Computed example of a mutant assay.
Amino acid sequence: MQLPPRLTPDAALFLDFDGTLVAIADTPEAVEVPTALVPLLHDLHGLLGGALAVVSGRQIDVLDRFLAPLRLPAAGEHGVQRRSAEGHIDEQRAPDLTLILESANELARVHEGLLVERKHAAVALHYRMAPQLEAVCRDAMARAINGQPQFELLHGKFVFEVKPAGVNKGTAITAFMREEPFAGRVPVFAGDDTTDETGFAIVQPLGGVAIKVGSGPSQALHRLDSPRAVYEWLVQARDLLAEPRKNAS
């Protein structure tokens, strides 16, 4: 793998949140957003003509809270929710998660260190504070969806998540690329987790750039070491994109 190339004015930039824009914390609510990140994203959004979107496993309203006052185009819950550049939100109807939520909560009651996160259309079981329970968590969540093809089980970094089948970050990026201001641009997607691989699989065949953040195998052809490296790359991109405008003035 190699470092990503310079971001060009015709790019459509897609960014994962946890592990890419911000460092992963012990719990989802404990992440810290660097002070300079929000104004940086604001500047890049303008310099790219609005073609910047956050593509995350988080819910869109949670992303908005962390990135306030920005309300960027966004895909939440791995594509279950999507907000266009015009602000229109498409959201898949929430399935019945009762039994899955009960299974996850029961496991968390028995084992210390597990955290259950209920989303709009998904249930995530985090085991970052109890990594020895990976197999237990996997087996319990797999049993909970056994015989229910409308669900699929995602394995991310210290988390197993049950979500609707058939939607992912790749389908979300594809939808964005059909709309203005993303259409006709070169897609660039940065993400750190196995759940980002569906996005990498979309952008590279389109002649775009896939950037794996951190360690681990990936089909992405480019890599940055950490969220800090992503931030520095974005700062450089902003400064280079802004240069022609400064010269013109």
Rank of each mutant, 00 (worst) to 15 (best):
P164D: 09
K119L: 05
P28A: 06
V38G: 04
L37V: 06
D192I: 06
G170V: 00
L44K: 04
L97P: 15
P28S: 06
A135I: 04
P181F: 03
R128P: 15
V203N: 06
V235F: 05
V116L: 12
A30M: 09
D43V: 13
V38C: 01
A85S: 12
Q204L: 04
G19I: 09
H45M: 06
P217I: 12
L221W: 07
A242I: 08
G199E: 07
G46M: 07
D193N: 11
G170F: 02
A165H: 06
V22G: 15
L99N: 13
V213W: 09
E112L: 09
I173L: 00
H45K: 00
P4Y: 12
N146R: 14
A248Q: 08
I89G: 00
L47V: 06
P34K: 10
I89W: 09
L115M: 10
D61F: 12
M1Y: 05
A85E: 13
R109G: 13
F189I: 11
K169Q: 01
A140K: 13
D16T: 05
R109Q: 15
L114N: 00
T171L: 05
R58D: 00
G76E: 12
R109A: 15
L15N: 00
G156K: 07
L44I: 14
A51M: 02
A172Y: 08
R58G: 02
A51W: 03
A68L: 02
L13N: 07
S56Y: 08
T35Y: 11
V33R: 03
I145F: 07
